[in-house]
Design a protein around this nucleic acid. Structure first.
Lengths: 343, 343
DNA sequence: TTGTACGCGTTATCAG
DNA sequence: CTGATAACGCGTACAA
């Protein structure tokens, strides 16, 4: 009920001017006599005074807030990312404004505008669309923009941090090929996304390098949101020559895909080898334990923060690719016998 | 590089005063001639002007920001909650400041101070400790405080939203009893938490109502963070008379617990029936599909927001308990044979 | 219908 | 070492 104390209240109580109080509040901004300082601190304590952030921000051009714009926090991968980022940010004394785009261009633009209005110090985002104008305004503000996990083209002032998608897909594919698989289904993200494209490319390349044909009907590009993983798996399993192995390179679709697999009656890995891009702990609890591509969430978070809060250096100059680990568990094995599946 | 336009720049370009621009920006705050309005809007467009949030907040006592203080966003339950809350908040034009306490009193206090300084409109939190002084300062600000999922005592001005923990535990326990189980292990949260206590109480009551003894050695209270679920399960299985059923009422410990179970060689549900408090999609993919207590995340989120943004009504008057659903799947069955386990 | 002038809480400048 | 005062960008009485 009582109005919060202002810097003026403190100054009066301590019998000094507001300037002195400010200097006590921001050490290093000017000299203060030891005993004066003590009086001020006491007054601050008694009034339980706290400087108002809004007023502070009004003066200085920047803020101590970071924008975190993710596609979807319900996705455990993004959730872990958010957790780490919030943690790292806190350690640096900055707060995180969380927004979700739900993979929607329109929402994304709205978020970008809000972030602009709030003059956030930096933005860490999983971009959904090339919203040139909106992104550019942030650049005008000198705001650091860091793309994490994905990238978009046409925004050249943004730094980026992600995993080596191409290499990750290569590893997964090569592993299956080395086991003897020749028909490998591949479920990936939309071709409009950098991750969707890079992973598919790694897959294609690896097959070619091993002298195998690339059967386009084995590749499925599906959205991150929704349940299309189920349909995609269904389609793959209904192929005249069904695949003997499957790579689910769309993390958001792992669960729907596996749900469909469970209904198929196929046993893993005897009938079908499976590798998923997902390092959620439950993948180890699945029967059989799933072979995975594990994304180093902490690394992604740490690098993102570093770039987003780094005032030095040119913007858009850094494009980090951290390696994802392939962990072999029980869901991958040589194809059944050496006879191809009947058609 | 170019400094962002201010309201003054717009007024000059449109050949009007800043007051008029402000009125165009905040419709309803005063009359504006149609053609003037048009000129102003055009100027705004040309300069791509956006009012600065910090300056806005300085005037009005409140803000359009909501504080979301969760224990841990890496926990999928909280992640889904955050996702929904961010979504609902956006729909109401408010932004969400995300913070995590990691179940740490000290961090919690730090967060509360930050939220105070920022004059957030409301706070939705999973409280960790009774930090009377810090919570009270928010109350002085007239800030709505809503506890979600958990509650603490001594903060009587806070509203709360959670599931009916007592009833949920009763349902789970009753189900197992009705199947014929008499020795039911119970893994719950710390006794210092409202959820930990309520769930355990529901369990105890139900056993008593059915004329069964409450064997305290079957009850394990473990922290939310860490991997103690593994040890707890280990201890329960090592009991002279091991339980024939297990309720894991500590969502954060479900995975560690199940991991330990997987090593035990026990088959579910033949050797051990299992019910978990967790509605993550993977619980359905587990073999066998897990019987669960499903928390209605969307409801929790919707109610929380409603309370946190509701300026009307007395604070601390509302304590919502939404029902959690028991979903029977494949992990529960009558105990093996009718003979009690040998001792 | 429009413009002027002030206040919001803080920090920075510059004179004492 | 300290104090008065001018910004910062926006909203809003109040005057024109």
């Amino acid at each position: 009920m009582a109005k919060p104390a202002t810097i003026r209240d403190v100054s009066e109580r301590a019998g000094v001017s507001i300037a002195v109080v400010s200097r006590v509040l921001n050490p290093g901004s000017g000299p203060v006599a030891p005993d004066t300082k003590l009086r001020v601190q006491q007054a601050i304590g008694e009034l339980s005074y706290r400087p108002r952030t809004a007023a502070r921000e009004l003066k200085s051009p920047g803020t101590t807030t970071l924008g975190l714009m993710l596609a979807d926090v319900a996705n455990p991968f993004f959730a872990r990312l958010a957790d780490k980022i919030v943690w790292e940010a806190r350690a640096r004394g900055v707060n995180v404004l969380l927004m979700t785009t739900q993979e929607d261009q329109h929402l994304e633009e709205e978020c970008l505008n809000t972030l602009y209005e709030r003059r956030v110090a930096g933005v860490i985002a999983t971009p959904t669309s090339t919203n040139r104008a909106a992104w550019e305004k942030l650049d005008d503000l000198n705001t650091r923009v860091v793309f994490v996990d994905r990238t978009i083209e046409g925004v050249d002032f943004a730094d980026s941090v992600g995993i080596d998608n191409d290499l990750s897909a290569r590893r997964a594919t090569a592993h299956l090929v080395s086991l003897g698989h020749t028909r490998i289904g591949f479920v990936s993200g939309p071709t409009t996304t950098s991750t969707g494209r890079a992973r598919t490319e790694g897959y294609r390349q690896t097959l070619r390098e091993h002298g195998l044909d690339v059967d386009e009907s084995l590749i499925r590009h599906i959205p991150f949101r929704g349940d299309q993983g189920s349909d995609a798996v269904n389609a793959l399993l209904s192929l005249p020559q069904r695949p003997t192995a499957l790579i689910i390179a769309n993390t958001a679709q792992v669960i729907p895909s596996l749900r469909r697999l469970a209904f198929s009656g196929l046993s893993i890995p005897e009938d079908l080898s499976v590798i998923v891009f997902d390092d959620d702990p439950w993948t180890e609890l699945f029967t059989p334990a799933l072979s995975i591509i594990k994304q180093p969430t902490e690394m992604l978070a740490a690098h993102s923060i570093e770039l987003a809060l780094n005032t030095a250096g040119e913007r858009g100059r850094t494009n980090l690719l951290v390696q994802a680990e392939f962990i072999e568990r029980g869901s991958t094995a040589p194809p059944r016998g050496s006879t191809p599946p009947r058609d």
